[in-house]
Nucleic acid binder design. Structure first.
Lengths: 309, 309
DNA sequence: TTCGCGCGATTACGAATTCCGATGACCGCG
DNA sequence: CGCGGTCATCGGAATTCGTAATCGCGCGAA
């Protein structure tokens, strides 16, 4: 009842060769097969595609028209095949990972680009969130894994160090008297207007204790959980913030911020990988994790202090 | 090895329904069949088109891409089917007819238009020629039929009257003092500069004898076998010609010629249909002949003289 | 004219494919 | 834990497909 591609292939061959026999050879079939297929078409359409008299086969007007249309079909089929071939190679499957904004700002994009390139037929979904929400999702095994700030162990969640990144001081280029990139000594810091995350955020505690134990005066404290808002405020005012270096490697608005790693002593942030304890990382998850780790290392290298000697 | 349209149909249905079972119902197949077809595709491409986990099928990126390409294939196939459906109805076959210029000037075009409309899948070829050549081709059975001026019987050729058309006097609108269309009496004709066909043409004899037996003076005689040239010459000079009315019903350059049927007595030309004696007219040939005859009658009516009373 | 020769149509039969129905595994839900 | 839904799988039936052999026809050579 319904047409098949073989009909069309053989018809096209017969049309182009002007011979059933030649068409059969070209298409690795037999003259009889070609004849049958074309007869099937003619019966379905209730009209003849070829005129067979005088020993030669030559197309009728309907055959001419059908031939041109059939070329489109074959071209489309070829295109479909080629389209899908672009997805071969690489791993397959689905992947959902949770990342905190610290990771999504600089590291995610290049890792994602390499991942989709290497595994075109993998479906990946990234959810951005803070540690509490991400940990919860990992517990529920709704995420293959997540990257969060180092925390205490949690039931049902397996964790290990993902990377360590220096915390950096971020200030406006117009108000800070420092050169971008060079380490800043704590004793050189005057009284600061400091933007910090809320107490729900793990980093808040370490930042406060760092400033306290190094005797740095804090002129004012502003609690802000919005990362984009923090960066904007810092860029336009005398407020400064302490942020993970891994997210400040590339400034989307160059020249707006001055970024200086905290040195003497340094303050670092540990990012840990958490995954559902009951599962093991899928090959796809491992692949993406590897890429994330490579990109994280590349970005962290930006803040490597040249050692003396 | 090679893809089939059924693969594509079922894949598309499964993609759109997001369910093998629903796809099977839609395509009048079984869930098992759908599953097998899609597995076949996936094995050929060596990648998965659907992700089957958690009880639902959802397309992979490759599946998405393949789906879009498959729509093009199905559209193209539909277009091919519809294209050929435009040719159903009417007769089929091949037809070669021979016509003299007398027929091709006014009668052929409308007959051809109606013919191709009514029999879209028929292949028709018209060869233009003069009676000798056409008769020869009919003898050789290379033509289904031909229309030629009435002649004596010829071996191997069956003939019968096709139509009778009045001969008309054609002159330049600038040199003739007559109104277009009205009959001209022989005695009103002064000495003429007359263009005639060569002696090979059947009409030459009848034209000469007509002028002789009606005592019309011929100032000069010009032998011209080129029909287009004759018309052009007549349109631009004092030369006149006698031509079959059936070919002068529509003047391609209106206002150039004055055309007057010869009356008192009238001169007419008999056109006869000739066909190979050993064959009978194919249905296609009959159909075209009928149309030619209708159009000839319509054109001849242009010269009907309103009868008194 | 007659005789091959080439080409397509037709037929019958064996092979391959497709299709179907039943069964099994899996998941979410009650 | 059973229930209803899904898809995968399997074996056999039905269909399609390819093949070989044969026939008819037109053409060209003898």
């Amino acid at each position: 009842m319904a047409g098949s591609l073989q009909d069309i292939r053989l018809f096209v061959a017969a049309y182009e060769e002007r011979s059933f026999t030649a068409a059969a050879q070209r298409e690795n079939a037999t003259q009889s097969g070609v004849s049958q297929h074309i007869r099937k078409l003619e019966e379905r359409f209730r009209l003849s595609l070829f005129s067979r008299d005088k020993g030669r086969v030559c197309p009728t007007p309907a055959g001419d028209s059908y031939y041109r249309a059939c070329l489109d079909v074959l071209r489309a089929h070829d295109a479909a095949t080629k389209a899908v071939q672009g997805f071969v190679g690489g791993l397959e499957g689905e992947l959902v990972v949770g990342l905190m904004p610290t990771m999504t700002r600089c590291v995610l994009a290049p890792a994602l680009a390499r991942f989709t390139e290497a595994h075109p037929n993998a479906a990946i979904r990234v959810v951005e969130g803070y540690s509490a929400a991400l940990t919860q999702h990992v517990q529920a095994a709704e995420l293959d894994f997540a990257i969060v700030p180092g925390t205490a162990g949690i039931a049902g969640v397996k964790s290990r160090l993902f990377t360590r990144t220096p915390e950096v001081l971020v200030a406006s280029v117009r108000h800070a008297g420092r050169r971008n990139g060079e380490p800043v000594r704590t004793r050189e810091l005057g009284p600061l207007r400091l933007v910090v995350p809320s107490r729900a955020n793990t980093r808040r505690l370490s930042i406060e204790s760092y400033f306290a134990s190094n005797g740095i005066a804090i002129e004012r404290l502003l609690e802000l959980d919005a990362m984009l808002g923090t960066l904007d405020l810092v860029g336009r005012s005398e407020w400064v913030a302490v942020l993970p270096g891994i997210m400040m490697a590339a400034d989307p608005e160059p020249g707006m911020h001055v970024i200086n790693p905290l040195a003497d002593p340094p303050l670092t942030l540990d990012l840990v990988l958490i995954e559902p304890a009951r599962r093991i990382l899928s090959p796809l998850a491992s692949a993406f994790l590897g890429l994330l780790q490579e990109e994280a290392a590349r970005v962290n290298a930006r803040w490597d202090v040249p050692r003396p000697g």
